[in-house]
């Protein structure tokens, strides 16, 4: 990620959230989707994205589907049943974190 280390801890949640909203996505598509949604504010680097995807896959939260696209193989990632449940938990944790930070940084808005 180019802009801030603050986003680093939320990378897994971002990936899970995106996959929860889309049936399946491939690596490059995820980077572009995040870039578009944040209007270029958040850029996920390859060096951060793939270790996160592989870790989530190893934990059994993501499943992989391979298809042939334009003379090459494309690896699509999608949520497993456990992954879908974990997404809900992770999003709740993130919302709680944002609320806590809001209370610390800007008590009037909290």
């Amino acid at each position: 990620m180019s802009n801030s280390k603050l986003y680093k801890g939320s990378l897994n949640t971002i990936i899970l959230k995106l996959l929860n909203e889309h049936d399946k996505m491939y690596g490059y598509e995820i980077t572009q989707k995040v870039k578009a949604l944040t209007k270029g504010e958040l850029k996920i680097t390859e060096g951060a994205l793939y270790p996160a995807l592989h870790k989530l896959e190893a934990e059994g939260l993501l499943d992989v589907e391979v298809a042939k696209v334009d003379n090459r193989l494309r690896k699509y990632y999608k949520l497993t049943e456990t992954g879908t449940k974990e997404t809900v938990t992770k999003l709740e944790e993130l919302a709680e974190y944002i609320k806590t930070m809001q209370a610390l940084v800007n008590p009037k808005l909290a």
């Binding site: 690596g27 490059y28 793939y50 391979v66 696209v69 334009d70 090459r72 193989l73 690896k75």
Partner: peptide
């Protein structure tokens, strides 16, 4: 390589 190739080609 298949994953790297797809990413690099797309990028």
């Amino acid at each position: 390589r298949i994953e790297l190739l797809d990413h690099i080609v797309s990028a």
